[in-house]
Design a protein around this nucleic acid. Structure first.
Lengths: 149, 149
DNA sequence: CTTCATGTAACTTAATTAGTTACGATATGC
DNA sequence: GCATATCGTAACTAATTAAGTTACATGAAG
C-alpha cells in the first residue's frame, strides 16, 4: 500500500466486502486485496468501525462486515472516518505577530473551509453502491475479477 | 518552514515583495520572513520564476521582484507554479487487473478531476492584491508589522 | 481448551521533505 | 581587473511521517 492511497485502498476493500454481503472477511483476506498486511488493514479501517461503516467480530468465523447497506455509505463519511484532510496545505501560523502572515492565513483559511465544505458535499453524493455498480458494469463486460499480481 | 506550508510561506513572501514594489529582496531577506534559509527559498520559488510570477537577478543589488502587478497574480497560478497537488489522495493502480480497483479508481479520478477544476477556479479568483489589501486593513488597524519571533 | 480472529502497543524500515554545505556563474562597483 | 554580492544547483544530512512488522493480550466458536 503506497503512501496517500488510504482512501482508494479502503474503497477497494469496501467494494470487495459489498460484493460478499453477509460473509465476514478477515483482515488477512482484506490485506491481500491491497497488498499489505493484516495489521495495517485493521489500523486503517479502525476509524470506519467507530463510524459504524463496518463492524468487526473476533474469533472463529469472525472478520469484517459492512455496517449498513452500500447505498447508505457515502465517500464523504469514509473519508472523514479515515481522518484524511481533503486539502493538504497547512494554515498554521509560524511567525506569530506578523500581520502579513495573519492576512495570508486568514484568506487561505477562508478558502480551505469553503473548499472542504464543497468537496465533502460532492463526496457525500457518491456512495459505495455507485462503486459496486461501476464494478458490475466492468465485470459484465469483461467477465474477470482476477487479482492477478 | 514546516511541512505542507509551502503555499502559505510562498504567499507570505510574495506579499512582502508586493509591499516593496521595485525593490529587489534577496533570498536571505525572504528566508528570514519564513524562518528558513536562502537555499530553501530559492528552491521553493524557482517554479514561480519559470511561470513569470517573479523575476530574479544576480550580483550586487540583485534579488527577487514580482514579475507583474499583484492584481494579475492569482493563487491558482502560484499553487500550480509550486507544483502542489490540491488534492492529496493517490489514484495510481496498485493491483493491475483487478476490476474492483479499476472501478474505484475510475470514480475517484472523475471526482479528483472535477474537484481540481473547481478548486483551481476558486483560487483563480483570489489575487495577490487581495492578500495585500487584507494585510493593509490589519496594518491600519493595529499599526505594527513586526516580525517578532 | 484449542484455534482463530481482532485490538493495540512498540519497534523497524522506507520515503519524503526541509535544512545545510559547497561551489560555480554572473552582475555591480570600486 | 578584482573584490563583493547574489543567484543556481548539486550533493549531502537530518527530521518527520507513514507503512510494515512483531508480539501478545482479548475474546468468540467449536
Amino acid at each position: 500500500m503506497k503512501r496517500n492511497s488510504r482512501l482508494s485502498s479502503t474503497l477497494h476493500i469496501l467494494v470487495h466486502m459489498a460484493e460478499e454481503p453477509g460473509h465476514a472477511l478477515t483482515s488477512e483476506q482484506l490485506a491481500t486485496f491491497i497488498h499489505t498486511n493484516p495489521v495495517v488493514v485493521r489500523r486503517t479501517i479502525a476509524g470506519l468501525r467507530d463510524a459504524g461503516i463496518v463492524t468487526s467480530s473476533r474469533g472463529h468465523g469472525g472478520g469484517w462486515l459492512l455496517g449498513r447497506a452500500p447505498e447508505a455509505i457515502s465517500l464523504a463519511e469514509i473519508s472523514a472516518a479515515l481522518g484524511e484532510t481533503l486539502l493538504p496545505f497547512s494554515t498554521e501560523p509560524e511567525s506569530p505577530g506578523c500581520l502579513v502572515e495573519q492576512a495570508v492565513i486568514a484568506v487561505l483559511d477562508d478558502f480551505r473551509i469553503a473548499a472542504e465544505r464543497l468537496l465533502a458535499e460532492k463526496l457525500s453524493r457518491i456512495t459505495l453502491a455507485d462503486l459496486t455498480a461501476d464494478f458490475r458494469r466492468r465485470y459484465d463486460l469483461i467477465g474477470v475479477s482476477s487479482h492477478a499480481i
